[in-house]
């Protein structure tokens, strides 16, 4: 859950990139990191295996600037997609404010996408989150590959609640910013709805 620090005047929110192994979650975050100006970002941390597979998480803070005198900071995380790291995924999901699901468009990864969505639903339910309420964006990544499934078919199959869908080629930066922008909007609007005082 987002954390509004009234004394230090800060708003902190947590967005998690979720999805099947090798789908491009770390690539998304890396691109955001590389394109964010120095004064707006903290260190990026990657807890990964020697072969660059995410082991625990990647993390970077994004300092967005101020709203009504409050500094807004997004805490961006990726989870490890590999099936057997579920314990780690559950830990990273704690306190989440929004999820970006990075799907792998390749036909041979279709089942892996479905499995990851199912796994997300299950893990969120265990933490008493309602996925229908939670800010959520679907990204169809690897649109450049020849075995990518037809866009509309994939979007329909993976959609869980009429969420916005973005096409992406994360390794070229295509669609990365658009996806995060939409997630940020949803997260801040959700925070407004659930945590702010009504004006008089």
């Amino acid at each position: 859950m987002s954390f509004i620090h009234y004394v230090q005047k800060e708003i902190n929110c947590k967005i998690v990139y979720y999805g099947p192994g090798l789908g491009g979650k770390t690539t998304n975050l890396q691109y955001v990191y590389n394109t964010t100006p120095g004064h707006m970002k903290g260190r990026m941390i990657s807890l990964a295996t020697e072969t660059e597979r995410t082991l625990f998480f990647d993390f970077m803070p994004l300092e967005m600037g101020e709203i009504k005198g409050f500094k807004v900071r997004l805490h961006l995380y990726t989870v490890p997609g590999q099936v057997f790291y579920n314990a780690s995924r559950k830990l990273i999901l704690r306190g989440v404010d929004g999820v970006i699901f990075v799907a792998d468009s390749q036909e041979e990864r279709f089942d892996a996408n479905i499995e990851a969505i199912y796994n997300l639903k299950e893990n969120l339910a265990e933490e008493n989150y309602d996925i229908m309420e939670l800010p959520y964006v679907l990204q169809l990544n690897k649109r450049d590959l020849p075995s990518a499934m037809e866009r509309d078919v994939l979007a329909k199959e993976l959609n869980i609640k009429g969420e916005k869908v973005f096409d992406a080629i994360a390794c070229q930066g295509v669609g990365v910013t658009e996806t995060l922008k939409e997630a940020s909007k949803q997260v801040l609007m959700y925070l407004r709805k659930t945590q702010l005082e009504r004006g008089v």
């Binding site: 009234y6 967005m64 709203i67």
Partner: peptide, 19 residues
């Protein structure tokens, strides 16, 4: 305090500037 008045509009402007 942080009230919701103008928060939405301010947030959208900020997001447009950042991204």
């Amino acid at each position: 305090r942080l009230e919701e008045t103008d928060f939405g509009e301010n947030a959208m402007n900020l997001i447009d500037r950042v991204f």
